[in-house]
Structures are given as structure tokens and as C-alpha cells.
Design a protein around this nucleic acid. Sequence first.
DNA 1: CAATGTGTTGAC
DNA 2: TCAACACATTGG
Length: 321
Amino acid sequence: MDRSSIDRSKSVIIDAKTGAEAESGRKLPSSRYKGVVPQPNGRWGAQVYEKHQRVWLGTFNEEEEAARAYDIAALKFRGGDAVTNFKPLCETKEDEIETAFLNAHSKVEIVDMLRKHTYNDELEQSKRRNYGSRDWNWKRDAGICISFGDARARNARELLFEKAVTRSDVGKLNRLVIPKQHAEKHFPSQSGNNSKGLVLSFKDMDGKVWRFRYSYWNSSQSYVLTKGWSRFVKEKGLRAGDIVSFHCSTGPDRQLYIDSKVRNGSTAGISSQPVPMVRLFGVNIFELPSNGSCYGDKRLREIEVWTLQSSSKKQKVIDAL
DNA sequence: CAATGTGTTGAC
DNA sequence: TCAACACATTGG
């Protein structure tokens, strides 16, 4: 990867070309991929044309990401035999599923996913939704049949590492320090070269997608998750001593996952007066079969998080307790 | 202020 | 259709 210059808008090469050109500014490097255009800040934009009009597909850190975004849009807009950068999208069963997924969504929806960088997550999620359900006939109709073994393999996750968060991890610094050994072993190594780091997206236990900036801080010689982290801390009610764990799907997509669990038994600081979780919904939660987790209150935390993310009606139920 | 993505043009 | 380029608009 020759990210020779991150900020291309200011990387004026004085002696490479005429002095005049150096003075007037820069020439952005073309992309070798179709539908990909350089951005002044070193990132890459993706665009597809339809009816003489550009449809903007968003900006991306990596040229290839942008190229993939273009591919997906091209397949959606122009059909399966569109010219793409990478995707043939016709051979494997996976491809057929993706085709079905594309058919099931409007152009606007697909473009929206691409711009929000959630396309892959939505695709994976739709696969999971379809496997266990009665709706599984539409796959028959499309001539698609995937074994449950495959589905499970795709869903399988391996634990990468865990960390008990420190006070500063959940404080106002908006950053989580990733222990160096784990960062270097499990996370992409771009952040060393690229001072701005890169954006990693994780999925939590509810399927919600979290995007964090991942970078290396020279000042502290440490790897950190920054932008987006404080939102996670807030929503999960993380406190010092709680555990965050990072996982990765064993499938080819290598989807990253993040999970959090409290270590002490108190509830998160969202509701001002602590409410015994046992009473939630009138269900004696402690009677649920244990899953053998070493964190006895994990189940409580998961239920609580689910509750907080549910409809406002349920939220009111909680508040009323 | 930096980043995004639109306006626009000229090639293919 | 497409990408290059300039820059207005947006967002933090």
C-alpha cells in the first residue's frame, strides 16, 4: 500500500512537474478502479452514473472499499452483467443470496447502505434472519439452498481478547486504549503508517453496528479506539471495571464484534434510582437457565441493554418501575 | 476548519 | 457514461 501522501491537497511536488503547476496546487492521483475518484484529503469517493446523473456512493478510506461500493451499486443499477471491478457475482451460492438481497432492496436503500458503510452488515443480517425462519422458502424458489452448517460456520465467532475498562477508558477522553499486544495481533496494522488511523466497524450483541476510529497515538505509544467510543460507553452504561470483549467471525467476512458486560452487579447509571432487575416484566430472571458464563450478571446486562434500545413504550415501563 | 459531495466540463 | 477538477456546502 503506497499511501505516499495522506493529505494530497497539500502534497505539491515542486520539482516533479512545471513550477506553474506546483504553484497552482495539486493533481490528484486517478484511481485504477472504475467508479472511484480521489478526494482531496486522501480518501476515495465512489460514484455511479445513471441517466446522465451522478449518484454519489460515499467516501472511503481504502480505494478498494470504494471500488467494492461501486461494484454493488453497478450490480443494483445495471443488473448482474454490469462491468465491475471485482465482483462476477454469479458463481457461488453466496452470490445468489446477494443477488436476492439486492433485488429485495430499492436503489435508494442500497445507496444508503453504501454511504453509511453498512451494506455488508445488512447483507449478513439478512442471511441470519432468513435461515431460521419460515420465510426460508423464498430461497427454495430462487433455487438457493444453504446448509445450516454453513450458516453456523458463518455466524461462528472467535474471541480475540477482552479488556477490563479503566476509569479513563470510560471517562471524558473519548478513547479506549487497546493493549498493544492485542492490537498488533488482531487489528489491522494500518494505523502505524497512517496518523489518522482508520475506521473499524463492530457489531454488538443486538446486531447494532458501531464504528470507531482506530489509530496509534505516538504521544502515548498506544493503540486506541477514538471517535465513536464515547457513544458506546454512554449507551452501554459502561463503568470502570466492566469488560469489553472483541470477537471476529471465523467466516470469510471477518466481521468484528464488540460486547460489553458489567463486572459488578449494579445497574447502569441511566435510571436514577437503582431498580432490581429481577422484577423486569414480572419475570424472575434468575430462574432462567445459566449459560455457564463466568460473569454471573451477564444476562441481566443483556436484558437491560435490550430494554433500553426497545420502543419508547417499553422505555416508559422501565421509568415507571 | 476539514471533509464531503455537487457543479461542471471535456474526454471517450 | 465517465472522471477530473474546482469549490460550495456541510458538519464537527
